[in-house]
Protein backbone atom coordinates (compact mmCIF):
# COMPACT_ATOMS: atom_id res chain seq x y z
CA UNK A 1 0.00 0.00 0.00
CA UNK A 2 1.57 3.28 -1.08
CA UNK A 3 1.41 6.34 1.10
CA UNK A 4 -0.89 9.30 0.46
CA UNK A 5 1.92 11.27 -1.21
CA UNK A 6 4.81 9.27 -2.43
CA UNK A 7 7.77 10.70 -4.27
CA UNK A 8 10.27 8.17 -5.49
CA UNK A 9 13.64 8.34 -7.15
CA UNK A 10 13.64 12.14 -7.58
CA UNK A 11 16.71 13.28 -9.53
CA UNK A 12 17.39 16.79 -10.76
CA UNK A 13 18.56 20.33 -10.02
CA UNK A 14 18.45 23.87 -11.29
CA UNK A 15 19.63 23.10 -14.80
CA UNK A 16 23.30 22.64 -13.95
CA UNK A 17 24.53 19.66 -12.00
CA UNK A 18 21.96 17.49 -10.28
CA UNK A 19 21.48 18.39 -6.66
CA UNK A 20 19.30 15.50 -5.59
CA UNK A 21 19.97 11.93 -6.70
CA UNK A 22 17.28 9.29 -6.42
CA UNK A 23 15.66 10.86 -3.41
CA UNK A 24 12.54 9.20 -1.92
CA UNK A 25 10.05 10.92 0.37
CA UNK A 26 6.68 9.61 1.44
CA UNK A 27 4.03 10.98 3.72
CA UNK A 28 0.59 9.87 4.87
CA UNK A 29 -2.37 11.80 6.20
CA UNK A 30 -2.26 12.55 9.90
CA UNK A 31 1.48 12.33 9.72
CA UNK A 32 4.37 14.76 10.11
CA UNK A 33 7.44 14.02 8.04
CA UNK A 34 10.60 15.98 8.75
CA UNK A 35 13.51 16.31 6.36
CA UNK A 36 16.80 17.20 8.03
CA UNK A 37 20.39 17.26 6.92
CA UNK A 38 23.45 19.46 6.69
CA UNK A 39 23.54 22.66 4.65
CA UNK A 40 23.54 22.03 0.92
CA UNK A 41 22.20 18.52 1.34
CA UNK A 42 19.35 19.25 -1.07
CA UNK A 43 16.56 19.51 1.52
CA UNK A 44 14.96 22.59 -0.01
CA UNK A 45 15.60 21.29 -3.50
CA UNK A 46 13.75 18.10 -2.69
CA UNK A 47 10.83 20.14 -1.44
CA UNK A 48 10.86 22.35 -4.53
CA UNK A 49 10.87 19.23 -6.66
CA UNK A 50 7.80 17.98 -4.84
CA UNK A 51 6.14 21.32 -5.55
CA UNK A 52 7.08 21.28 -9.22
CA UNK A 53 9.21 24.41 -8.93
CA UNK A 54 12.14 22.61 -10.56
CA UNK A 55 11.85 20.07 -13.32
CA UNK A 56 13.04 16.59 -12.55
CA UNK A 57 15.02 14.32 -14.85
CA UNK A 58 13.69 11.23 -13.19
CA UNK A 59 11.27 10.23 -10.52
CA UNK A 60 7.58 9.89 -9.99
CA UNK A 61 5.20 11.75 -7.73
CA UNK A 62 1.92 10.11 -6.80
CA UNK A 63 -0.68 12.03 -4.80
CA UNK A 64 -3.70 10.09 -3.64
CA UNK A 65 -3.02 7.46 -6.35
CA UNK A 66 -2.88 9.98 -9.23
CA UNK A 67 0.33 11.01 -10.98
CA UNK A 68 1.19 14.68 -10.42
CA UNK A 69 4.73 14.61 -11.87
CA UNK A 70 3.74 16.63 -14.91
CA UNK A 71 1.63 19.27 -13.16
CA UNK A 72 2.67 22.90 -12.83
CA UNK A 73 3.04 24.34 -9.31
CA UNK A 74 -0.34 26.07 -9.70
CA UNK A 75 -2.04 22.83 -10.64
CA UNK A 76 -0.41 21.05 -7.71
CA UNK A 77 -1.84 23.73 -5.46
CA UNK A 78 -5.22 23.02 -6.96
CA UNK A 79 -4.62 19.29 -6.46
CA UNK A 80 -4.21 19.86 -2.74
CA UNK A 81 -0.58 20.66 -1.99
CA UNK A 82 0.11 23.85 -0.07
CA UNK A 83 3.51 25.36 0.56
CA UNK A 84 4.90 27.82 3.08
CA UNK A 85 8.21 29.20 1.80
CA UNK A 86 10.98 30.06 4.20
CA UNK A 87 11.17 33.76 3.34
CA UNK A 88 8.81 36.18 1.63
CA UNK A 89 5.98 33.95 2.69
CA UNK A 90 3.34 36.60 3.33
CA UNK A 91 1.83 39.49 1.37
CA UNK A 92 3.37 42.13 3.60
CA UNK A 93 1.40 45.00 2.09
CA UNK A 94 -1.96 43.28 2.44
CA UNK A 95 -3.96 42.94 5.62
CA UNK A 96 -4.06 39.66 7.48
CA UNK A 97 -7.55 38.92 6.23
CA UNK A 98 -6.59 39.76 2.65
CA UNK A 99 -3.66 37.36 3.00
CA UNK A 100 -6.12 34.65 3.88
CA UNK A 101 -8.41 35.58 0.98
CA UNK A 102 -5.47 35.38 -1.41
CA UNK A 103 -4.61 31.99 -0.01
CA UNK A 104 -8.07 30.89 -1.05
CA UNK A 105 -7.80 32.52 -4.46
CA UNK A 106 -8.52 29.35 -6.38
CA UNK A 107 -11.61 28.47 -4.37
CA UNK A 108 -14.96 29.33 -5.85
CA UNK A 109 -17.02 28.52 -2.74
CA UNK A 110 -17.43 30.70 0.33
CA UNK A 111 -14.28 30.95 2.38
CA UNK A 112 -15.81 32.52 5.49
CA UNK A 113 -15.96 29.21 7.32
CA UNK A 114 -12.33 28.40 6.65
CA UNK A 115 -11.32 31.85 7.84
CA UNK A 116 -13.22 31.27 11.08
CA UNK A 117 -11.50 27.90 11.51
CA UNK A 118 -8.16 29.56 11.12
CA UNK A 119 -9.05 32.29 13.57
CA UNK A 120 -9.85 29.50 16.03
CA UNK A 121 -6.51 27.89 15.36
CA UNK A 122 -4.58 31.18 15.60
CA UNK A 123 -6.66 33.50 17.83
CA UNK A 124 -4.06 36.27 17.46
CA UNK A 125 -4.92 36.48 13.76
CA UNK A 126 -8.47 37.50 14.49
CA UNK A 127 -7.45 40.56 16.50
CA UNK A 128 -5.01 41.63 13.80
CA UNK A 129 -7.26 40.83 10.84
CA UNK A 130 -7.27 44.39 9.49
CA UNK A 131 -3.61 45.11 10.14
CA UNK A 132 -0.98 44.94 7.40
CA UNK A 133 0.76 41.60 7.64
CA UNK A 134 4.15 43.25 7.25
CA UNK A 135 3.63 45.14 10.50
CA UNK A 136 3.30 42.01 12.64
CA UNK A 137 5.95 40.38 14.79
CA UNK A 138 8.05 37.54 13.43
CA UNK A 139 6.05 34.81 15.08
CA UNK A 140 2.73 36.28 13.98
CA UNK A 141 3.97 36.62 10.41
CA UNK A 142 4.83 32.94 10.48
CA UNK A 143 1.26 32.29 11.60
CA UNK A 144 -0.07 34.36 8.73
CA UNK A 145 2.14 32.40 6.35
CA UNK A 146 0.84 29.05 7.58
CA UNK A 147 -2.75 30.33 7.64
CA UNK A 148 -2.51 31.52 4.05
CA UNK A 149 -1.37 28.08 2.96
CA UNK A 150 -4.18 26.41 4.90
CA UNK A 151 -6.82 28.45 3.10
CA UNK A 152 -6.92 26.04 0.18
CA UNK A 153 -7.84 23.29 2.71
CA UNK A 154 -4.81 21.33 1.51
CA UNK A 155 -4.29 17.61 1.85
CA UNK A 156 -0.55 18.08 2.02
CA UNK A 157 1.13 21.02 3.75
CA UNK A 158 4.81 21.68 3.12
CA UNK A 159 6.83 24.04 5.26
CA UNK A 160 10.33 25.22 4.48
CA UNK A 161 12.12 25.95 7.78
CA UNK A 162 9.09 27.40 9.54
CA UNK A 163 11.08 28.15 12.68
CA UNK A 164 14.09 29.88 11.13
CA UNK A 165 14.90 33.02 13.07
CA UNK A 166 12.17 32.83 15.70
CA UNK A 167 12.59 32.58 19.46
CA UNK A 168 12.40 29.18 21.21
CA UNK A 169 9.02 30.08 22.70
CA UNK A 170 7.57 30.94 19.29
CA UNK A 171 9.16 27.80 17.88
CA UNK A 172 7.39 25.71 20.45
CA UNK A 173 4.11 27.41 19.65
CA UNK A 174 4.51 26.90 15.92
CA UNK A 175 5.24 23.21 16.37
CA UNK A 176 2.18 22.85 18.58
CA UNK A 177 0.00 24.38 15.87
CA UNK A 178 1.52 22.10 13.29
CA UNK A 179 0.52 19.10 15.40
CA UNK A 180 -3.03 20.50 15.62
CA UNK A 181 -3.12 20.84 11.86
CA UNK A 182 -1.84 17.30 11.45
CA UNK A 183 -4.59 16.00 13.69
CA UNK A 184 -7.18 17.55 11.39
CA UNK A 185 -6.13 15.05 8.74
CA UNK A 186 -3.41 16.85 6.81
CA UNK A 187 -0.17 15.30 5.65
CA UNK A 188 2.73 17.53 6.66
CA UNK A 189 6.26 17.77 5.29
CA UNK A 190 8.76 20.02 7.06
CA UNK A 191 12.30 20.91 6.09
CA UNK A 192 14.11 21.95 9.25
CA UNK A 193 17.41 23.26 10.54
CA UNK A 194 16.34 22.86 14.15
CA UNK A 195 16.60 19.11 13.68
CA UNK A 196 16.25 17.96 17.28
CA UNK A 197 13.07 19.84 18.04
CA UNK A 198 11.57 18.95 14.67
CA UNK A 199 12.31 15.25 14.96
CA UNK A 200 10.68 15.38 18.36
CA UNK A 201 7.31 16.06 16.79
CA UNK A 202 7.95 13.99 13.66
CA UNK A 203 6.19 10.74 12.94
CA UNK A 204 8.80 9.96 10.36
CA UNK A 205 12.09 11.56 9.42
CA UNK A 206 14.52 11.61 6.52
CA UNK A 207 18.18 12.57 6.80
CA UNK A 208 19.45 13.84 3.46
CA UNK A 209 23.17 14.00 2.70
CA UNK A 210 24.58 14.98 -0.68
CA UNK A 211 21.14 14.80 -2.22
CA UNK A 212 20.52 11.19 -1.20
CA UNK A 213 18.52 9.52 1.53
CA UNK A 214 21.10 8.67 4.17
CA UNK A 215 18.87 7.62 7.02
CA UNK A 216 15.16 7.35 7.48
CA UNK A 217 12.92 6.14 10.21
CA UNK A 218 10.51 7.18 12.90
CA UNK A 219 11.33 10.50 14.53
CA UNK A 220 12.23 9.09 17.92
CA UNK A 221 14.25 6.28 16.36
CA UNK A 222 16.35 8.79 14.42
CA UNK A 223 16.84 10.86 17.54
CA UNK A 224 18.13 7.79 19.32
CA UNK A 225 20.33 6.65 16.44
CA UNK A 226 23.93 7.15 17.56
CA UNK A 227 25.28 7.88 14.10
CA UNK A 228 22.60 10.43 13.33
CA UNK A 229 23.09 12.09 16.69
CA UNK A 230 26.82 12.34 16.21
CA UNK A 231 26.80 13.64 12.66
CA UNK A 232 23.79 15.94 12.58
CA UNK A 233 22.38 16.65 15.97
CA UNK A 234 25.56 17.76 17.70
CA UNK A 235 25.95 14.71 19.98
Amino acid sequence: MTKFLSCTNMTGGYGGEDIIHGCDIEVDRNQIVVIVGPNGAGKSTAMKAMLGMISLKEGSLILDSSDISKLTPQDRVAAGIAFVPQTMNIFSELTVEENLEMGAFLREDSVKETIEEIYNLFPAMKDKRNQLAGELSGGQRQQVAVSRALMTRPKVLMLDEPTAGVSPIVMKEIFERIITIKNSGVAIVIVEQNAKQALNIADFGYVLVGGENKFSGEGQALLNNQEVRKSFLGG
Binding site: A78, P85, M88, I90, S92, E93, L94, E98, G103, R148
Partner: peptide, 23 residues
Protein backbone atom coordinates in the same frame (compact mmCIF):
# COMPACT_ATOMS: atom_id res chain seq x y z
CA UNK B 1 -12.67 43.17 -5.32
CA UNK B 2 -10.98 39.80 -5.47
CA UNK B 3 -9.29 40.63 -8.77
CA UNK B 4 -8.02 43.94 -7.43
CA UNK B 5 -6.69 42.35 -4.29
CA UNK B 6 -4.95 39.67 -6.33
CA UNK B 7 -3.33 42.43 -8.37
CA UNK B 8 -1.99 43.99 -5.20
CA UNK B 9 -0.88 40.58 -3.99
CA UNK B 10 0.94 39.90 -7.27
CA UNK B 11 2.62 43.27 -7.08
CA UNK B 12 3.64 42.70 -3.47
CA UNK B 13 5.01 39.15 -3.74
CA UNK B 14 5.05 37.55 -7.15
CA UNK B 15 6.25 34.10 -6.07
CA UNK B 16 3.72 33.76 -3.31
CA UNK B 17 0.98 34.94 -5.66
CA UNK B 18 1.91 32.11 -8.01
CA UNK B 19 1.84 29.66 -5.11
CA UNK B 20 -1.62 30.91 -4.24
CA UNK B 21 -2.81 30.07 -7.72
CA UNK B 22 -3.05 33.66 -9.00
CA UNK B 23 -2.69 33.58 -12.78
Amino acid sequence: TKLGKSMRAYSNNEDLALLSGIN
